[in-house]
């Protein structure tokens, strides 16, 4: 279980998260919604271990481990996965090399034998087929020249290969047309399991038509101001974020944070 307690984080001295509380139990899918600048992506980056953000107060407990004490790579090896809002292009590193380095780093940590080239290729090709990626993407540089949709598919491919315990998807729907969105959502749904939790960050309700969350939280000014079931997302869709920010929605949400 993931338990975020009164988390405060800042970048360049500017506070972005202001006492965020959240609990995600094993197997649950939580959606976090919020307007631009509410701190959604900061939460994702802080969880993944980006050190440009300074955690100024609060804690994150993950199955008894102090998550914030671990460097990014150790979080990944322990089973945390962040699907990036803007996947990074790495010219000169082939996707195949990148995926193999990642998968083997994590398998080593888990005490599993590393894949040899043949086993790895057959595994990765099967997963690529599932997310609708052509084989040529293995031999191209990581994300370089990929379209928005191809980049997001590549993120879902990595998630499938790395088999995380906790996946954080940061606006995986942004920039996708409806077909790409469906493929990405199917990829995510395929990975839902009682051992795997997910935090799905999104600006729009649309994604939640395809990835149905157990809980929905609304983030505003660095705090969760309202939590509820999936109907909360529909309500937001109707009223817009102004409804929350004006205080009307937030008032009803007092004490409702958490899962």
């Amino acid at each position: 279980m993931l338990k975020i307690d009164k988390l405060h984080a800042a970048v360049d001295g500017k506070a972005i998260l202001n006492g965020l509380d959240l609990e995600v139990k094993d197997g649950e899918v939580h959606a976090i919604m919020g307007p631009n600048g509410s701190g959604k992506s900061t939460l994702a980056q802080v969880l993944a271990g980006r050190d440009t953000f300074e955690v100024t107060a609060g804690s994150v407990d993950w199955d008894g481990t102090d998550l914030l004490a671990l460097p990014a790579e150790e979080r990944a090896r322990a089973g945390l996965f962040l699907a990036f809002q803007y996947p990074v292009e790495i010219p000169g590193v082939s996707n195949a090399y990148f995926l193999k380095a990642a998968v083997n780093a994590i398998r080593r940590h888990r005490g599993l034998p590393e894949y040899d080239a043949m086993d790895f290729l057959s595994r990765v090709k099967a997963e690529m087929k599932a997310v609708g990626m052509r084989e040529e993407f293995l031999y191209r540089s990581v994300n370089e020249g990929f379209s928005g949709g191809e980049k997001k598919r590549n993120e879902v491919l990595q998630m499938a290969l790395l088999e995380p315990k906790l996946a954080v998807l940061d606006e995986t729907d942004s920039g996708l047309d409806i077909d790409a969105l469906k493929v990405v959502a199917e990829g995510v749904n395929r990975l839902r399991s009682p051992e795997r939790s997910m935090i799905v960050i999104t600006h729009y309700q649309r994604l939640l038509d395809y990835i149905v969350p157990d809980r929905v939280h609304v983030l505003s000014k660095g705090r969760i101001v309202r939590s509820g079931g999936r109907e909360l997302a529909l309500e937001l869709e109707q009223h817009g974020y102004g409804w929350i920010e004006s205080g009307a929605g937030a008032a009803q949400a007092a004490g409702a944070a958490g899962g």
Partner: peptide, 13 residues
């Protein structure tokens, strides 16, 4: 950014 991306995939710094 590239460094962080690799680290979030379990590759040490």
């Amino acid at each position: 950014n590239a460094l962080f991306y690799l680290r979030t995939r379990g590759v040490d710094e």
